[in-house]
């Protein structure tokens, strides 16, 4: 258990997260507006990195799940868990920003665009993954089941992806102008790359903290399971043998 708990909780990830957030914000606010989209193009600099992190996180979850099944080291299970939670967060954020962008640009919160539909499905798949992890306190059983789910989820993603794309293209041709077209300005590309890079750094810092949390949660679980303590505590009193006198 000593290995699970670090003496001091590292502070540097918080600082890194704050700097990464700040860099993205400054870059996004100072870049010149897009010729067609105007100021609205600025939303892209948080939307695209969020979507990127969603995919990255779920990729890391799959790889960590695979390594866990191979090595049976719970540390990899914690990494898979941490990454999945961060991934669900960024998937939700990417969807929310996509909706805000959609509403502001073409006046509707939701379009049945293939990518949007896929992202929404992915969100629920990994929500299920997180829910699955809550069903048992047996750490090894939990890790094995979650690892199978973590891999199954990724295996299904391409199938869902293609089915949704075919479903869309056979009916309504894409009517939306994709803002990140090939004819993007160099400054905008550089800004976008900066935002993606700083969000990736933010992801790493978040992983450090989230894995630390996973270790602590496991340590609490072990402490609870080994430290039996009193069954009912204060509720149990010695029997009164005086006969009520």
């Amino acid at each position: 258990m000593a290995t699970l708990v670090q003496k001091k909780s590292p502070v540097w990830p918080w600082i890194v997260m704050a700097i990464a957030g700040l860099v993205t914000f400054v870059a996004a606010m100072t870049v010149p507006p897009d010729a067609v989209q105007g100021q609205l193009s600025r939303i892209m600099y948080v939307h695209v990195p969020s979507a990127w992190l969603a995919y990255l996180s779920f990729g890391v979850t799959m790889i960590a799940s695979g390594i866990y099944l191979w090595k049976r080291d719970l540390e990899w299970d914690r990494r898979a868990h941490a990454s999945a939670e961060i991934g669900v967060f960024f998937t939700g954020l990417a969807i929310a920003l996509g909706m805000i962008w959609g509403k502001s640009t073409w006046g509707t919160w939701w379009t049945w665009d293939a990518r949007l539909t896929l992202t929404a499905i992915m969100f629920f798949v990994y929500l299920g993954y997180l829910a699955l992890r809550r069903t048992t306190d047996d750490m090894d059983a939990r890790a094995k089941r979650a690892a199978v789910m973590g891999i199954l989820a990724i295996v299904q993603i391409p199938l869902v992806h293609f089915s949704v794309i075919w479903w869309q293209t056979l009916h309504q041709p894409p009517s939306i102008i994709k803002p990140e077209g090939p004819d993007m300005d160099t400054v905008m590309v550089l800004t976008l790359l900066t935002a993606v890079a700083s969000f990736t750094v933010m992801y790493i810092a978040m992983m450090v903290k989230r894995v630390e949390l996973a270790r602590l949660e496991d340590a609490v679980l072990i402490a609870e399971q080994t430290n039996t303590g009193p069954a009912a505590g204060e509720a149990v009193v010695a029997p009164d043998l005086s006969g009520g006198a």
């Binding site: 499905i121 992915m122 629920f124 798949v125 929500l127 299920g128 829910a131 699955l132 809550r134 069903t135 048992t136 059983a141 089941r145 199978v148 789910m149 199954l152 989820a153 299904q156 869902v160």
Partner: peptide, 19 residues
């Protein structure tokens, strides 16, 4: 995957539906 864990019968549909 869910096995006999807590809230198993509610969780299986959640895992299956999106997939």
């Amino acid at each position: 995957i869910v096995s006999t864990g807590r809230s198993a019968s509610a969780l299986v549909p959640l895992l299956v539906a999106p997939l």
